[in-house]
Amino acid sequence: MRDSTLKKVWIYFLLTVTSFLVFFPVLYAFMISFMSGSEILQGRFFPEAFNFDNYAKVFDRLPLFKYLLNSFVVSLTVMVGQLAVCSLAAYAFVFIPFKGRDLVFFLFISTMMIPWEATMIPNFFTIQKLDWLNTYQGMSLPFFALAFGTFLLRQHFKTIPKELQEASQIAGLSRFAFFWKVILPVSKTSLVTLGAYGFLTTWNMYLWPLLITTNSSVRTVQIGLKQLQSQEISTDWGVVMAGVIVVIIPTLLLLFIGQKQLQKGLSQGALK
């Protein structure tokens, strides 16, 4: 059994070194966020003391609370919107047979081939014409429909026995009531996966908010970071990193909590 002990030590060694390297940039940013300018110039890894000066400064120089709130509102809106729109569509694809359903499904697949960036110019003008620049709806509505999300939920809905629907029909449940009272509660896990995915991707969105926010009314933290970086560059890295840490904490937490679930759910939606 000495062979396998050696193997274990070797694997632990590789795990430790590589995962440290992967996490190093974040860890380093975290350390920097507590350092003063001179400490950073010295090139230290650990700060002298964990004082929150830089955090106070970053909230001072940017309307960071406002940005955080905006990011939350937009991410939650997209999350809820995606869940609603995708689950309705997935429900139709699994539980309502009608002629031409395959054709519509093919249409959904084809949306995956259109890169969003190729459509951004007309989309920008659409939002402008609707007078939705600098609004929450302009930030979120275009992302409610999501082919990937529909597939992910469809995969799960397909595992629900058809007899459940028939039993509900005999009990006299309407179609929507069946969707609301049976399908959604039964699919809680994949809804959580899609929700986390939607929240994460929206929180991290960059190009669209850059295009359609011109003032701080609905601007998100990502654009805030860009602002901060262009204001503070080469002067106060500690403050910039404090901003970075504040911005990544919500999503990192979400990821740490939901890592297992997300991994299972995403690989399920991706395949099969």
């Binding site: 026995p161 007899e163 459940l164 028939e166 039993a167 029909q169 005999i170 009990a171 006299g172 449940l173 049976v182 039964v186």
Partner: peptide
């Protein structure tokens, strides 16, 4: 089905 005044037991039971 709900207007036919009947109940049904399925092979896989169809429990929620």
């Amino acid at each position: 089905p709900d207007k036919r005044d009947l109940s049904m037991v399925f092979q896989n039971y169809a429990l929620y």
